[in-house]
Design a binder for these strands. Structure first.
Lengths: 157, 157
RNA sequence: AGACACCUUCUAUU
DNA sequence: AATAGAAGGTGTCT
């Protein structure tokens, strides 16, 4: 399996409000940048979307190290929260609904095909790729606001 | 009888721990705000205290609509739990002791002089007065913690 | 088993 | 200052 690095970040002005995601894929020193946005979303949905878009960009099963600054995303996977929510019908331990189940379903499905190690990185702490993802996410959120519609883009090589 | 609206809320950091209550009385478009705290209490005792302080502020029998977000308080009155506990010597249906009987005694006594309709409001749902009461309760709990002693305050008009 | 409330911690987004 | 999300817990009752 090919070894890939994926870096992700989300942004959302207003929260809820117009939001964007930024994703960098790296394979053999070549990078591909993805970004996009949604005119009405939340910070956490954009963090999740950044992960989804990165994994969906792969055309075959890969071995991935994925970096995110979202404890929500990282803990939900590495601590087994998401699997537990799905098992219990998207209900949390306190019996209240676990949110964003639509996106978690997609992520869990993608994790069944790829081998992914999730790594948490502290936000705004000088991590080069995380800060580039943040720029992309902000750009996505700005375009979503001006467009008033969802969109996706690919840049770089 | 004068028609009064009373809004109440309680807070308690730690639970048990330092707690506060907040109460708003409204009569003819004039409002009075009460708050206070206790360095060692529970959330439910503060919810009850908010009710007691509001009713005790009245100098004559009134017709009151009282709003609380505590099902414990609302159900104990509207479903007759408190009357039942008192009748059975402060014993619950499961034979265990009913708690906070000291405060329930005071409330039942106040209900004998005033005509009160209890209304439950959902907490943290944009209810203006409930959120103001929450602010007052938090202030009371903070002052109780720093003072290390119980106190009561009256503000507004 | 259910309900409401009250918290403690954590991260991100503003 | 606030929102979006999660874990763990107590206070109380039916």
């Amino acid at each position: 399996m090919k070894k890939i690095e994926i870096f992700t970040d989300g942004a959302c002005s207003g929260n809820p409000g117009p939001g964007g995601y930024g994703t960098i894929l790296r394979f053999n020193n070549i990078s591909k940048e993805l970004y996009g946005g949604d005119p009405k979303t939340t910070n956490n949905r954009m963090e999740m979307t950044a992960v989804i878009k990165g994994l969906q960009a792969l055309k075959e099963p890969c071995e991935i190290t994925l970096y995110s600054d979202s404890k929500y995303v990282i803990d939900a996977i590495t601590k087994g929260w998401a699997v537990g929510w799905k098992k219990r019908g998207w209900v949390k331990a306190d019996k209240k609904p676990a949110l964003n189940s639509d996106l978690w379903e997609i992520i869990l499905q993608l994790l069944a095909v790829h081998k992914v190690e999730f790594v948490w990185v502290k936000g705004h702490a000088g991590h080069t790729e995380n800060e580039r993802c943040d720029e992309l996410a902000v750009k996505g959120s700005q375009e979503a606001r001006s467009l008033g519609a969802s969109f996706d883009k690919v840049v770089g090589e």
